[in-house]
C-alpha cells in the first residue's frame, strides 16, 4: 500500500518543478505554479511537523489556531506591503 502522504508530497514536488521550469523559460504560468507548489509543500511540511512532534495526537488546539492567526496576519501584511510598494493601493 502506497503512503498517501508520500503521494501528496510527490504531487507538490511535481507542481513546483514544472513551475520552476516554466519560470526559468520565462513562460506564462510559471509563477503561479511555483506558488502552488511552494504552498502545497508548506502544507505537507506542516503535516509532517505536526505528526513528528505529536501535535495531532496530543491535541491540535490552540496550536493550530495560533498558526492560523500568524498565517493570516503574515500573508495579509506581506501582500498589502507588496501592493503598497507597487502602487496598487495608491490608485
Amino acid at each position: 500500500m502506497i503512503d498517501p502522504y508520500l503521494v501528496l508530497t510527490v504531487i507538490g514536488i511535481v507542481i513546483l518543478v514544472i513551475g520552476v521550469v516554466l519560470l526559468a523559460g520565462k513562460m506564462k504560468g510559471g509563477l503561479i505554479l511555483s506558488l502552488i507548489g511552494i504552498l502545497w509543500l508548506f502544507t505537507m511540511g506542516l503535516y509532517y511537523a505536526f505528526t513528528y512532534t505529536g501535535v495531532y495526537s496530543s491535541g491540535l488546539y490552540p496550536i493550530a489556531n495560533i498558526i492560523g492567526v500568524v498565517l493570516l496576519i503574515v500573508g495579509l501584511v506581506l501582500v498589502l506591503r507588496y501592493w503598497a510598494r507597487t502602487g496598487v493601493l495608491r490608485r
Binding site: K28, G29, L31, I32, L35, L39, L60, Y61, A64, N65, I67, G68, V69, V70, L71, L72, I73, V74, G75, L76, L78, V79, L80, Y82, W83, T86, V88
Partner: peptide, 25 residues
Amino acid sequence: WDAIDVSTTALSAAVYGGALAATGG
C-alpha cells in the same frame, strides 16, 4: 498571471486558510 494575480492568489490562500484555522474548534 503576473505578480499582481499571483499575489492575489497568495493573499486569498493565506487569509482563507488562516481564517479557517484561526477559528477551528
